[in-house]
């Protein structure tokens, strides 16, 4: 898969339909964000996919993304510095984009 045959996306690069996501899609979007996916990335991506299945929404802000990761995976993973190192920029936005989730509503 390459950028040219990705599923439909919005003008900010988020998938229109979360169900279109696959690990190949994640790798292509990650490359666009200059992120090379490691096991630590996949752990967060898998967390977000499960979160979406359960709640049918993205964590609505970066702060609540960090909180949700902390609740699920503990303090070591659920902190801003760790998540920012994995997903540069606004971690919630970058991670949701790679995981095929909608754009978090309160991220600027």
């Amino acid at each position: 898969m390459s950028a040219s045959n990705l599923p439909e996306r919005n003008n900010e690069g988020f998938l229109e339909y979360a169900t279109d996501w696959s690990s190949d899609v994640a790798s292509v979007i990650a490359a666009e964000e200059d992120v090379s996916l490691s096991d630590n990335h996949w752990e967060i991506i898998e967390f977000l996919r499960k979160f979406y299945n359960k709640h049918e929404m993205s964590p609505p802000s970066n702060r609540l993304f960090v909180k949700a990761v902390k609740d699920a995976l503990g303090e070591e993973k659920g902190n801003s510095i760790y998540l920012m190192q994995l997903f540069p920029g606004t971690p919630a936005k970058t991670a949701c984009k790679i995981a095929g989730l909608p754009r978090p509503t309160n991220c600027l």
Partner: peptide, 15 residues
């Protein structure tokens, strides 16, 4: 539509 129930179930998690 998205599930109102599933959306709402995130409320305690978000404080």
């Amino acid at each position: 539509q998205k599930s109102a129930e599933k959306n709402l179930s995130a409320a305690p998690l978000f404080g």
